[in-house]
């Protein structure tokens, strides 16, 4: 087992009011190596909160997250950055590329921060380039790229550290339909090579490319679906049905 999440709870309390928001409530699930999991839920259901907790960007109120036998919730503050750098890869909704760096340097960024040798950085990049089709982009600046291109660069940056787990937060939200499709296919391919991916989304289309979908509502996980060997479009129908039936909402 790669990742074990048990009894996770997150309560937000703003400084100025007594009011508490329970964002996560007794969330437990586990992830095997090589899995591709989508966590689905409507807006405000706690998806981002969950992902941030897994990403060590946020500490849970209760519960534990164990990655390869190490409890992430008890890592010391000053070791967190290094941990993220070496074990996790991130893909964000709005790409989060640095304007000050060229595309190549953006991809190198986590390795540079990890004081990796230049030769190794270049070797790894060389392997990623054909897979992600970014050869022409390397010498450009981020502002010259389209959304889809940016997201491919962001994926390259997530993969170059060869992370145990890639975390993606609504990676298709800022893309148009065609680019979304391309990106989802790309993530599937990456997963086929053995890379474990965990993605949160509120889009049934995006979720349908995963191998397993967890449903979250009001901070609780209460259902899951396996794709098995189905076509993505078939799987999507079931996901939509589940959303409408179980959650009582229309899926967009």
């Amino acid at each position: 087992m790669l990742l074990q999440v048990s009894h996770l709870q997150k309560i937000f309390q703003t400084r100025f009011s007594k009011e508490k928001t329970v964002a996560l409530q007794d969330v437990s699930f586990s992830v095997e190596e090589g899995e591709y999991i989508a966590i689905m839920g409507e807006s405000g259901s706690g998806k981002t909160t969950l992902l941030n907790t897994l990403a060590t960007l946020d500490k849970p109120t209760l519960g534990s997250v164990i990655l390869n036998g190490q409890d992430l919730t008890i890592i010391k503050e000053n070791k967190l950055a290094e941990f993220r750098r070496t074990h996790l890869g991130f893909i964000f909704q709005d790409f989060n590329l640095l304007d000050t760096l060229s595309v190549r340097d953006n991809i190198f960024l986590p390795l540079v921060l990890g004081r990796q040798k230049v030769r190794i950085m270049e070797q790894r990049l060389e392997k990623l380039v054909p897979k992600l089709n970014i050869a022409d982009l390397l010498n450009k600046q981020p502002f010259e790229l389209s959304g889809g291109q940016k997201q491919r660069v962001a994926i390259a940056r997530a993969l170059i550290t060869q992370p145990e787990l890639v975390l993606a937060d609504e990676p298709t939200a800022a893309l148009d339909f065609k680019n979304s499709e391309g990106l989802l296919a790309l993530l599937e391919e990456i997963n086929d090579t053995g890379q474990t991916i965990l993605m949160v989304t509120h889009s049934a289309i995006a979720a349908s490319h995963a191998k397993r979908v967890l449903f979250i509502k009001d901070g609780r996980i209460f259902h899951q679906l396996y794709r098995a060997n189905r076509e993505a479009s078939k799987f999507m129908q079931e996901i939509s049905m589940t959303m409408t039936n179980l959650l009582g909402t229309e899926v967009r």
């Binding site: 990403a55 960007l57 503050e77 000053n78 967190l80 950055a81 290094e82 993220r84 750098r85 070496t86 991130f90 964000f92 989060n96 590329l97 640095l98 304007d99 000050t100 960024l109 986590p110 921060l113 990890g114 940056r157």
Partner: peptide
């Protein structure tokens, strides 16, 4: 930029 850098793996001290 510094937010992104922290997410990607630069500690507060760094």
């Amino acid at each position: 930029s510094f937010e992104i850098l922290q997410e990607v793996g630069l500690s507060k001290d760094e």
